[in-house]
Every structure is written in structure tokens, then in C-alpha cells.
Write a protein that binds this DNA or RNA. Structure first.
Lengths: 193, 193
DNA sequence: GTAATTTTGAAACGTTCATTTCAATTAAGA
DNA sequence: TCTTAATTGAAATGAACGTTTCAAAATTAC
């Protein structure tokens, strides 16, 4: 029987994520990935197929991490308001700890590649659909519980929240003032009440 | 005395803007720019110094165009509410006519380059400062006229609007449903009333 | 220990990258 | 018309690009 994959796939993906996140897809070279992962060039091609293949895995890895974080916070919450607040808190925390102003990998990738790579466009459509569905569900529950108003449909509020998250991710690249960001989020979320 | 520049600088910048907007900075090659502008390689280096130099001019050109559009709409408006509405209408119009989902050149560049190129970071800081100052001024006037509420300071509302604009620019890459976008904007702007 | 099969390392693939070079061309002022 | 200086075209620069190749090393099952 053959030799088996020796490296930790997650560790490699973590390292690759850091590079892609810092330099963007087009700004990252295969050499950067070889250096960061300490994997051999051939091993990368063996395991990930291509630069784009590796990037897709990185994107999923990054997204899964967010979904897990959000999932945990949601089960800890007692109502829809707390859930939404907890979700936004995750993003603020990431902004405040992102010392090199990288922004969000998914937002960055969306703006860089949606119009260039069909597979990225599909990923982003799925990402949007899933995020909207999650938010819509929370909003709907919040409206049932009379915590949120019913001036808009759950879908429209979900779209508003999704848009706000992306906006905050962009603003957070240059503005990392905690007080201003938290106030900003309160302004965003007050719309629901 | 010497021969003078024969090409129209604005026409060249227009063509270069289209390329950078479509492919991003790192995705654009000098050959792309030579092809698009029909300028010779040497002429580009003569007139713009470098790829980054040309890109900076493109960025200013693109930004100036927006400032002019907004300026015109502002003088046509009768109050703060109309001004803000007109500004957002410009962005919605651009989203709806952006058939290849390029998004906003400035937002794209911010997410791609702020953490890589100091000169881009400076540009974006200036862009943010100017945009916030403009919005703050409008909000302040709106509050004086009792058109807008005073739950937040003009600066905080400006930051909220600036963030919303960036968010809408990101959402608009994949979602080009006019009804949903206009509803979204009403949700955003209702906060002020 | 041997056979089987994958990972690994290092080099090489051909292409494209941003930039430079430089002689030829061009057009304005004297 | 001659001088002057910039524009132009085309080729060349060397480095970096993503990807492939292939023999050597490594690891598992028998």
C-alpha cells in the first residue's frame, strides 16, 4: 500500500488562507503558497489541483469557520435580537483584531473575482443565498415574537442586514474605532425595533 | 520646440479605467492597457510613469466623475432629504447599468490594495474623509431643518450612510433587482427620519 | 524484506510580467 | 529649413508566473 498524505490539511489551509487573505487571489503567487505552507510545489498540485482549486478550498475553509462561529453564538442566544447582535459582534471582533487591514476574504474575493471566474460567482451566489436564508429566518422569528417590527418582509430585512454586514466589512478596513463601529451597528439594528 | 502629446488624455484614461475596473489592478497587465488604449508601451510609461502611476490617475479620474455627478444632483436638490436620495440614486443607476458585475472601482480597489500599497491607503483615507465630510454636512443641514431626527450626531449618521453605500455597492454585484434595491435604500434612509 | 504506490524535491516548461532601451519619426519654434 | 525635443515602434530585458515532469525517497501491506 502507498505512502499516505503526511501533512495536516487544515494546517495547510490555514497557512494558505493567511496568504490569500493578505494578498488577494491575483496578488498571491504559487511561490508564496509554497513558502507559507512549507509544502512542496508538487504536493500542492497533487492535493489541490491548481491555484484556483486551492483557493476554492481556502474559501470554503474560511466560510465554514464563520458558519461554525455563528452557529455557536445562535444556540447561546435567547431571542432573535440577541442572535443578530451576536452575529454583528463577530464581525466587529474580527475588524478590531485585523491589524493589517485585510478586510473580509469573502467580500474581497467577491469584488475581485465574481466577474472573472464563474466558479467564484457560483460560490458567492450560494454564500449570499445561505446568509440571506439564515438572516431571514431570524428576522421572521423576531417578528413573530414581536421583538422586531413588521414594516418590511423578513427577506427585505435580511437583504438590509446582509448589505450592512458587507458595508461594515468595507468600512472596517480603514476605520477601526470600536466606539464608532458599535454605535454604527446599533444604528443599523435599531431599524428592526 | 518639441512635438506635443497627440492623444487625448481623457480618452486614454477612460479606456484604462474600463480595463482596471473589469480586471482589477493585479489582474490587469501592461499588455491589456496597451491593447485597450492603442497607445504604445513607451508612451504609457512616458505619460504615466508606471502601471501604478496610471492606476492612480485612473482612480482620480473615476472619483472625479462621481464627485461631478453628485455635485450636479446636490445643486438641483431642494433639501437634505432629496440630496441623500439623489446620491443613492446615482449608485443604484450604476448598479443597474453595470451589466458585467464589476462593482465599484473604488470599493474594489480598497479591498484589493489598501493593505498592500501605502499610496492607495492614503487615497482611500482621503476618499473616506471627503465622503464623510460631504454626508455629515448634508445630515447636519437636514437636522437643522428638522427633516432628519437627532438621535445620532451628523458624523455618526454620515458613517452609517457611507457604510451603507459600500454595502449596497457590494450587494449590487450579484443582486440587480431594481425593486429590492430601491426598497433597500428606503430602509436605509428611513433611519434618518 | 519486498512490492506497491504516493509524496517529495528540484529542475525545467513555455508564457507572461513590468519595465527599459534606442533608433526612427514627428512636429513645433527659430 | 533647420534645430530641438518629445513621441513612437519594436525589440529586448531579466524576473516571475502557473504548471509539468520525473527520478528519488518514503511508507504501508504483505
Amino acid at each position: 500500500m502507498p505512502k499516505v498524505e503526511t501533512f495536516s490539511r487544515n494546517e495547510v489551509l490555514q497557512k494558505a488562507t493567511e496568504v490569500f487573505h493578505t494578498k488577494g487571489y491575483n496578488g498571491t503567487s504559487m511561490q508564496d503558497l509554497v513558502d507559507a505552507t512549507t509544502l512542496n510545489r508538487s504536493s500542492i498540485y497533487n492535493s489541490f489541483g491548481s491555484k484556483l482549486g486551492m483557493f476554492m478550498d481556502v474559501l470554503s475553509y474560511y466560510y465554514t469557520n464563520y458558519k461554525n462561529q455563528i452557529g455557536k453564538k445562535i444556540v447561546q442566544s435567547h431571542n432573535a435580537s440577541e442572535m443578530i447582535q451576536a452575529i454583528f459582534d463577530i464581525y466587529v471582533h474580527d475588524i478590531l483584531t485585523d491589524n493589517d487591514r485585510k478586510g473580509c476574504l469573502i467580500v474581497n474575493c467577491k469584488s475581485e473575482m465574481v466577474n472573472q471566474e464563474p466558479i467564484i460567482k457560483s460560490f458567492m451566489e450560494q454564500n449570499q443565498e445561505q446568509t440571506l436564508a439564515m438572516l431571514e429566518d431570524i428576522v421572521h422569528n423576531g417578528q413573530m415574537e414581536k421583538i422586531f417590527n413588521q414594516k418590511q418582509t423578513p427577506y427585505q430585512y435580511a437583504l438590509y442586514l446582509y448589505t450592512s454586514i458587507q458595508g461594515i466589512r468595507m468600512t472596517g478596513i480603514l476605520n477601526t474605532n470600536e466606539k464608532e463601529l458599535k454605535n454604527l451597528i446599533q444604528t443599523v439594528l435599531n431599524v428592526l425595533h
